[in-house]
Amino acid sequence: MANLRDIRDRISSVKNTQQITRAMKMVAAARLRKAQDRMNDARPYTHKLDEIIARLTRRTEVDNPLFKSAEKPKNILLLVMGSDRGLCGGFNTNLFRVVEKKIYEDFTEHLEHETLSMICFGKKTHDYFRARKYPVIDHKIGFFDHLKYEHVHEVMNRIIAQFKEDSWDEVYLAYNEFKSVIAQNRKIVKILPVSPDTEKKTVPSHAGEASGNNAAKKDLSDIDYLYEPKPDTILEYLLPLHINIQFWQAALESFAAEQGARMTAMDSATENAGDIISDLQLKYNQARQAAITTEISEIVSGAEALSE
C-alpha cells in the first residue's frame, strides 16, 4: 500500500504541473488574440494588392521573369514553417508528415539527384528534417519570436533573386493555416513561379469578406487606368511584393495556428492533471482511513489482550 507521504507529494507535484499548463494555455490565448489582430490588419492591404495585380495581368502585353514556368522543373526549394517550441500537440508532426508525403509523391527523383533543397523555419522543423537527413540548406531559429514585416524582405528577396538567376525552378511554402483553435489546415503552396491567373488570391479562403471592400464585385475592366511608369515596370515592383506578402501571411497564420494548437494541448493537459489529482486524492483518503482502521484495530486487540 502506498505511503501517505508519497501520495501527498505526488498530489503536490501534479498540482504544480497543472498550474504551469494552465498558465501556458492563457499565454497562448493572449498571443493568439494578438496574432489574429495582425492577420486582420494585413487583409485590406492584401486584397487591394491582389486586385491591382489581377487587373495588370489581364493586359496581354505584360510579362515578367517571375511568371516563368519550366516544363520539367529541376531545382526545387521547399520552405517549411514549424515552431521553435513544443507542447503544441500535433502542430509540427502533422505538417511534417504532409511535407514528407509531398516529397515522396512529387519529388523522389529530385531527392535522389540532389536537386531538392529545404529551408526550415523553427527549431522543431530543423531538428526533424535534419535528423532524417533531408537536404536542409538553411534554417531560421527564433524566427517567430519577433515577427516583423521587415524580416520578410531579408528572407524572400534573396530567394526571388535566385529564382531569376535560375537557381530554382519552383519554390514551395509549407505551413499550418489557422482555421480555429482546435483545427489547423496543412498547406503546401507554390509561390514561385507566380501564375498569371486573375483568380489567384493571397488571402486564405476562410477569411471571408472581412475587409468590407466591394472590390470583388466591381467589374475590373470598366475603368481605363493611366499607369505610371509602364505596366511592366509596375508589375516588376508588385510581383515580388505579392510573394513577400504571401510569405508574411503564411508566417502570421503559422504563428496563430501554433498558439491555437498549444492552447488546446495545454487545456487537455490541465484537465488530465485535474483528473489525476482527483484520483490521487481518493487514494489518499482511502490510505488515510485504512491507516486509522489499522490503528484502531491494534488498540482494540491490544486492549482485549490485556483484559484477558
Partner: peptide, 25 residues
C-alpha cells in the same frame, strides 16, 4: 483616402487632396 500597410490601415477618411512622392516626381 485610405493608406494601407502590411501591418494595418494607417489612415481612413475624407480628404481634399493628397500629395505623394511618385517615382517620376
Amino acid at each position: 483616402a485610405h493608406i494601407l500597410t502590411p501591418v494595418g490601415p494607417v489612415f481612413d477618411g475624407e480628404v481634399e487632396g493628397v500629395q505623394m512622392p511618385g517615382v517620376n516626381g
